[in-house]
Amino acid sequence: MLRIAVQTKGRLNDDTMRLLTEAGIKLSIGKRNLLVASQTFPLELLFLRDDDIPQAVADGTSDVGIVGENEFVEKQKDAELVKRLGFSHCRLSLAVPKEAEYQGLNWFAGKKIATSYPEILSEFLRKNAIKANIHVISGSVEIAPSIGLADAIFDIVSSGSTLITNHLREVEVVMQSEAVLIKNTALSNDKQAILDELIFRLETIQNSADKKYLLLNAPNDKLSEIVAILPGMRSPTVLPLAQAGWSSVHSVIDEKHFWEVVSKLKAAGAEGILVLPIEKMIP
């Protein structure tokens, strides 16, 4: 049985539970359950605060964990980052009062900066030879300048709306963050095998994200041109149609390139273009 630590509540929890469900891991979770076993996979979930997960994984209380990269880097615990998961994106940034005449990092010299991430901030200031005073706050960092506790803040930013509400503006992005999968450095072979299967399932889900399955009909004398337009895992699949002189072409494309690719295909003579969603894609 592999034990995985996840956030008790919040956006990271919601995204994590959605991902595990897509991976075929079924769980029955009650309101007061802190440890829940799956009925379909040799895995149990341990619910913890986000900032407690790196320590739990490092000391073996949990075998693996899904945690914000910002917390993993800040806590500096002896655990291994296994995989970036591609959700719960945010950034750690420096922000100043919107009326401040900010002209560069030297503005922070001698200033007091409020943050919940003193280790990451200290390292950033050290690398940039900036001497500032760090004031550690466990929550509501954004109000520190308005009540006179600090001159600026260093905190998580997602949309930036919280900064605007508190009359602050983002001036320096220090770190990009997302959900990551971390593991204990002394995982047994049996637990590593379970983790490998879990990673395989997660990668299968990630491979299908933002991709579409494309089918079209093409005249044979245009096949070379049309195939050259289409990306694919290796190359497009081409099958003969019952109508002489025509073929069916199948491929996978990124959704972000969809309209650009379809326009080129139509111009090259493709017809009957059909686009389907992809639930899972195994490389």
Rank of each mutant, 00 (worst) to 15 (best):
K127Y: 09
E203D: 08
G65V: 04
V174D: 05
P277H: 11
P42T: 09
G148Y: 12
P283L: 11
V36P: 00
A150K: 05
A95P: 02
G232W: 02
V36S: 09
R18M: 13
L48A: 10
D155I: 07
A109V: 14
V57Y: 01
V141I: 11
S28W: 04
I278W: 01
A193W: 04
G232P: 00
W259E: 15
H89E: 11
Y117M: 11
K111N: 04
K98G: 10
Q103V: 13
E101D: 15
A267H: 09
M281G: 11
F108D: 00
H89V: 10
L241C: 14
E101A: 15
S62I: 06
D151P: 00
D14K: 12
D254H: 12
V64Q: 03
L12V: 09
N33A: 15
I130P: 01
H167E: 13
L215P: 00
E119H: 12
G65R: 00
V173D: 05
V136R: 13
P283M: 10
A242T: 12
L198T: 06
V57A: 00
G60V: 02
P231Y: 05
Y213F: 15
V227F: 09
S140M: 11
R234D: 13
R91L: 05
G110P: 02
N128W: 09
L48P: 02
Q192C: 07
H135K: 14
S88F: 04
L223W: 00
F41E: 01
F108E: 01
D14C: 05
Q206C: 08
